[in-house]
Design a protein around this nucleic acid. Sequence first.
RNA 1: GCCUCUGUGGCGCAGUGGUAGCGCAACGGUUUUGUAAACCGUCGGUCCUCGGUUCGAAUCCGAGCGGAGGCCCCA
Length: 553
Amino acid sequence: GVKYAIGPPIEDGYYYDFELPSPLKEEDFPRIEEKMREITKRNSPFVREELTREDARARAAAQGQDYKVQLIDDLPEGEVISYYSQGDWADLCRGPHVPTTGYLKHFKLLHIAGAYWRGSEKNKMLTRIYGTAWPTKQEMFDYLERLEEAKKRDHRKLGKDLGLFVFASEEVGSGIPLFLPKGEMLRHTMETYVREVQTRYGYQHVWTGHLVREDLYKKSGHFENYADVMFPVMRDEDANINYRLKPMNCPSHMTLFNSQFHSYRDLPLRYAEFATLYRYEKSGELNGLTRVRSLTQDDCHIFCTEAQIESEFGLALKLIHEVLNRYGFTDYRVRLSMRGEEPGGKYVADDDKWNRATDALRRALIANNVEYYEAPGEAAFYGPKADFQTKDVLGREWTASTIQVDFIQPARLGCEYIDEEGTKQTPVVLHRAVTGSTERFMGLLIEQYAGAFPFWLAPQQVALIPIADRHHEYAKEVLKKLQAAGIRAESDDRNEKMGKRIRESEMQKIPMMLIMGDNDLENGTVSIRKRGEGDLGAKTVEEAIELFRSMLN
RNA sequence: GCCUCUGUGGCGCAGUGGUAGCGCAACGGUUUUGUAAACCGUCGGUCCUCGGUUCGAAUCCGAGCGGAGGCCCCA
């Protein structure tokens, strides 16, 4: 028989998990929906019934509903246990429900997915059916419409349309984005900007390459948790050494720290790196630019004393605010990710250090007036963290910025500094990333702006389109002047009809175009066309440069 | 990795057993020509791969490789 697990409401809909005797297919949906309509037409009432724990348990057990029995057993003491019934169907549910089935008129089953019971892959995989329901036909139509619209902003689609990047999975492999010239330009702009900010905030940039001896990760503790995602590269049989592609930077940066003596006067010491990392993410995990196997992390490690945590956290916070605001991200939530309740697991066992680290973060969040919510079980194995959660166009949550306190790794890797008393101390390390990874952040940016980037970020600021002759000397001269003025200009190398090119530029969200027609070539002018404002008429090159500059802010 | 869905010219799609079609794009041309369009024509496909069933496979079956939506994971 069918066993019922859980079926909660979610944003814009609901799902229900079942254990089914035979697999369900999406082609079964019409039949199920037909049945649903039949039930709603009956307009039968939902009846609420409150039971004692024993009665509820007996009832679920009698029906052979093992999952319900487990749910009942796990309900906290004092919780009212209710059953809702409708016709001959009864189900454990907290409620509330609509009075009768007739209230449910506009619904649609969306898709099927597998889901582990209780979310643990050790448990059986159940069949989850997602659906949506709305009070009116119009609202449901609007919702489905919104989904369609969102798909148009999907960075995977826009990235292709705008010529930013491609995935050649069958040639170079899954999860390895290849960036076209415009995409590389965008990457470069993003990284140059963050580098400039970091330098201003007292960070020093370092470089640690791509290969690391496996032993270092055994020492740091990464190996036992993440061996699965580390690409093996090469083994030196004679020396008995394994080299790995670098999946994280922390041990490398700490090794750099250890390479020199440090006094308390050197602290805080802030190392930053735009590092290419490689992680063998599970195939089902890959997702456009937001989850890849080769990524560029804007990773930083701040070595400081325990007393400096709060001020360093505050500084990092200020930096993150500045950067996210510049990019136009204001809609994010801060999550304090803490160790889970369960003892052991991946978390390094040292209650005292965990408590001190968590308290330090909490104090810093409060001191800086940051609103946050706590999430047990989300911490890194070495410490708690503050994660800045943003959403993509389909509503999925992703971590962009993160600040993490680490009392564990520096000790393991033997980091030291000499304090005022002349004794050796272990520094605290703050791990910090602003954009998280250049790739993921670019994906979020593309969706944020639907491809219409702000001027300073746009991979192409101006398209040059000489009408008469693209090899015209004057056109070349104009291009040179623009580039000399620091404006990213490209000449269009296709000798196309202008109307087509303009339509295409609208699609590509080019913020400003510079057109050189016959008249311009004769008069020594250029014609400006600005996105959203249309034709601005003929200008001199110098006037055009002024106009571009004014757009930069 | 697991569950469900999916893989046809550059892009979007149609085609469920008889050796592939449409729209857009591209290319050429005519006309017009300052931000746009009309018309005519042309090019372009190992129908993801391998194997099987069949007289015959894009179509049915199996395996593999991709992609999508979830689940677990996310240093």
